[in-house]
Protein backbone atom coordinates (compact mmCIF):
# COMPACT_ATOMS: atom_id res chain seq x y z
CA UNK A 1 0.00 0.00 0.00
CA UNK A 2 1.59 3.24 -1.10
CA UNK A 3 0.62 6.79 -0.17
CA UNK A 4 -0.97 5.71 3.10
CA UNK A 5 -3.21 8.48 4.38
CA UNK A 6 -4.55 8.18 7.92
CA UNK A 7 -7.04 10.99 7.34
CA UNK A 8 -8.59 9.23 4.37
CA UNK A 9 -8.82 5.95 6.29
CA UNK A 10 -10.48 7.79 9.16
CA UNK A 11 -12.92 9.48 6.81
CA UNK A 12 -13.91 6.20 5.16
CA UNK A 13 -14.39 4.60 8.59
CA UNK A 14 -16.34 7.62 9.83
CA UNK A 15 -13.86 8.15 12.68
CA UNK A 16 -12.79 11.52 13.98
CA UNK A 17 -9.12 11.30 14.93
CA UNK A 18 -7.40 14.30 16.44
CA UNK A 19 -4.04 15.31 17.89
CA UNK A 20 -2.04 12.62 19.64
CA UNK A 21 -4.58 9.94 18.84
CA UNK A 22 -4.31 10.60 15.11
CA UNK A 23 -0.53 10.58 15.40
CA UNK A 24 -0.38 7.32 17.38
CA UNK A 25 -2.93 5.39 15.29
CA UNK A 26 -1.28 6.57 12.10
CA UNK A 27 2.05 5.13 13.23
CA UNK A 28 0.41 1.88 14.40
CA UNK A 29 -1.39 1.38 11.11
CA UNK A 30 1.74 2.09 9.14
CA UNK A 31 3.61 -0.56 11.10
CA UNK A 32 0.81 -3.05 10.50
CA UNK A 33 0.74 -2.34 6.81
CA UNK A 34 4.53 -2.63 6.51
CA UNK A 35 4.29 -5.99 8.28
CA UNK A 36 1.59 -7.24 5.89
CA UNK A 37 3.56 -5.86 2.95
CA UNK A 38 6.17 -8.55 3.57
CA UNK A 39 3.78 -10.87 1.73
CA UNK A 40 4.64 -9.02 -1.46
CA UNK A 41 8.12 -10.51 -1.33
CA UNK A 42 6.70 -14.00 -1.89
CA UNK A 43 6.39 -15.41 -5.38
CA UNK A 44 2.68 -16.24 -5.67
CA UNK A 45 2.64 -16.74 -9.43
CA UNK A 46 1.76 -20.43 -9.05
CA UNK A 47 -0.55 -20.09 -6.07
CA UNK A 48 -4.31 -20.20 -6.61
CA UNK A 49 -5.94 -17.05 -5.22
CA UNK A 50 -7.69 -17.88 -1.98
CA UNK A 51 -11.44 -17.37 -2.16
CA UNK A 52 -12.07 -18.83 1.24
CA UNK A 53 -9.88 -20.14 4.04
CA UNK A 54 -11.85 -23.37 4.30
CA UNK A 55 -11.83 -25.52 1.15
CA UNK A 56 -15.58 -25.86 0.79
CA UNK A 57 -18.02 -24.56 -1.77
CA UNK A 58 -21.75 -24.28 -2.51
CA UNK A 59 -23.27 -23.96 0.92
CA UNK A 60 -26.83 -23.12 -0.04
CA UNK A 61 -30.23 -22.85 1.61
CA UNK A 62 -33.65 -23.60 0.18
CA UNK A 63 -35.91 -20.66 -0.65
CA UNK A 64 -38.16 -21.14 2.37
CA UNK A 65 -39.38 -18.49 4.76
CA UNK A 66 -38.88 -18.62 8.52
CA UNK A 67 -39.35 -15.90 11.08
CA UNK A 68 -37.35 -16.36 14.27
CA UNK A 69 -38.58 -13.20 16.05
CA UNK A 70 -41.18 -10.48 15.70
CA UNK A 71 -40.00 -7.25 14.11
CA UNK A 72 -40.89 -5.35 17.27
CA UNK A 73 -38.16 -7.33 19.08
CA UNK A 74 -35.54 -5.60 16.96
CA UNK A 75 -37.21 -2.20 16.87
CA UNK A 76 -37.35 -2.17 20.66
CA UNK A 77 -33.59 -2.60 20.81
CA UNK A 78 -32.96 0.48 18.67
CA UNK A 79 -31.97 3.75 20.38
CA UNK A 80 -34.93 5.39 18.68
CA UNK A 81 -37.84 4.15 16.59
CA UNK A 82 -41.06 5.62 15.32
CA UNK A 83 -44.02 4.04 13.54
CA UNK A 84 -42.16 0.79 12.84
CA UNK A 85 -39.17 2.67 11.46
CA UNK A 86 -35.68 3.06 12.86
CA UNK A 87 -35.09 6.73 13.58
CA UNK A 88 -31.66 8.10 12.67
CA UNK A 89 -30.13 11.57 12.39
CA UNK A 90 -31.09 13.39 9.24
CA UNK A 91 -29.38 12.25 6.04
CA UNK A 92 -29.01 14.83 3.31
Amino acid sequence: MSGFDIDNVALLARLRLEGAERERLGKDLETIIRYIDQLDQLDTARVEPTSHVIPIQNVLREDEETRPFASSDYLNMAPSEKRNHYEVPKII
Partner: peptide, 23 residues
Protein backbone atom coordinates in the same frame (compact mmCIF):
# COMPACT_ATOMS: atom_id res chain seq x y z
CA UNK B 1 -37.63 -15.49 -4.93
CA UNK B 2 -39.81 -16.08 -1.88
CA UNK B 3 -37.04 -15.18 0.53
CA UNK B 4 -34.06 -12.86 0.70
CA UNK B 5 -30.67 -13.68 -0.76
CA UNK B 6 -28.83 -14.56 2.48
CA UNK B 7 -31.61 -15.08 5.06
CA UNK B 8 -35.06 -16.64 5.34
CA UNK B 9 -37.01 -13.36 5.48
CA UNK B 10 -39.91 -12.89 3.09
CA UNK B 11 -39.47 -10.66 0.02
CA UNK B 12 -43.17 -9.81 -0.13
CA UNK B 13 -43.84 -6.26 -1.27
CA UNK B 14 -46.07 -3.89 0.66
CA UNK B 15 -45.67 -5.31 4.15
CA UNK B 16 -45.43 -3.14 7.25
CA UNK B 17 -42.06 -1.41 7.57
CA UNK B 18 -39.35 -3.65 9.04
CA UNK B 19 -41.64 -6.68 9.17
CA UNK B 20 -39.38 -8.65 6.82
CA UNK B 21 -36.24 -8.51 8.93
CA UNK B 22 -34.12 -10.87 10.99
CA UNK B 23 -30.73 -10.76 12.72
Amino acid sequence: TRTKIFCACSTEFGRTANENTCP
